[in-house]
Design a protein around this nucleic acid. Structure first.
Lengths: 104, 104
DNA sequence: TTGACATATGTTATATGCAACATATAATAT
DNA sequence: ATATTATATGTTGCATATAACATATGTCAA
């Protein structure tokens, strides 16, 4: 594998984005449908300014897209591939928690 | 996918560990062989206390194992699966950088 | 135009992460 | 015992991340 420095920098940025519970929860909430800010606030019980702020970060790093419809801003997962990677990580930690050995 | 809260907490912890260039570089350096601290310092040109500190974090989160042999502490990747996930992330950002669309 | 609702932004305080540097511990040889 | 090498730990300063709260902007209806 070509372990290029600039590439690692970019990967580190995405890992920082994923290093936050609220952002992960938002990504999962968007897994199967787009949603506006209020519905995210309601379903995840996170304060509105916090949701807006985290969505702005997810948008900045192109993990979500947004579309305005009247008063509502609809956010959509822009990257199912990212969620696949998060799935893999959740699978990994779930084995860690159970004390199971790694799978190769 | 069962999006369990405690699981997300654990995933967030691992993402934080991966949110650092030196740690990623160390993991890649350990990809195919174990290595002692000095050889990591030499090959990656990172100051020794920094390497020791980052290795301690990698060890704490069970991403590496360590074995003492005389004066030397040998570190070994404990988790090829983690590196597979990092590979996937590097592949992802490499497409992002090139402006290519996501693959599904 | 005013009010109500949806969303975003700004501010502050606190917490966390990191490198850099100095220093400590451990192992071995002399 | 002392010196030397290998590694680990502690401290400080700085940058960044976060939540909480207040406030601003935008949209639409009455």
């Amino acid at each position: 594998m070509d372990v290029n420095d600039a590439l690692i920098d970019e990967a580190v940025k995405i890992y920082k984005v994923l290093s936050n519970k609220n952002r992960i929860k938002i990504l999962y909430f968007l897994e199967n449908h787009e949603a506006d800010v209020s519905s995210i606030v309601d379903h995840l019980s996170i304060d509105q300014p916090v949701v807006s702020h985290q969505l702005a970060i997810l948008y900045q790093y192109q993990l979500v897209t947004k579309t305005k419809q009247g008063k509502h801003m609809y956010y959509c997962l822009d990257d199912p591939h990212i969620l696949k990677m998060v799935d893999a990580m959740l699978g990994h930690v779930s084995h860690e928690i159970k004390g199971e050995p790694h799978q190769y």
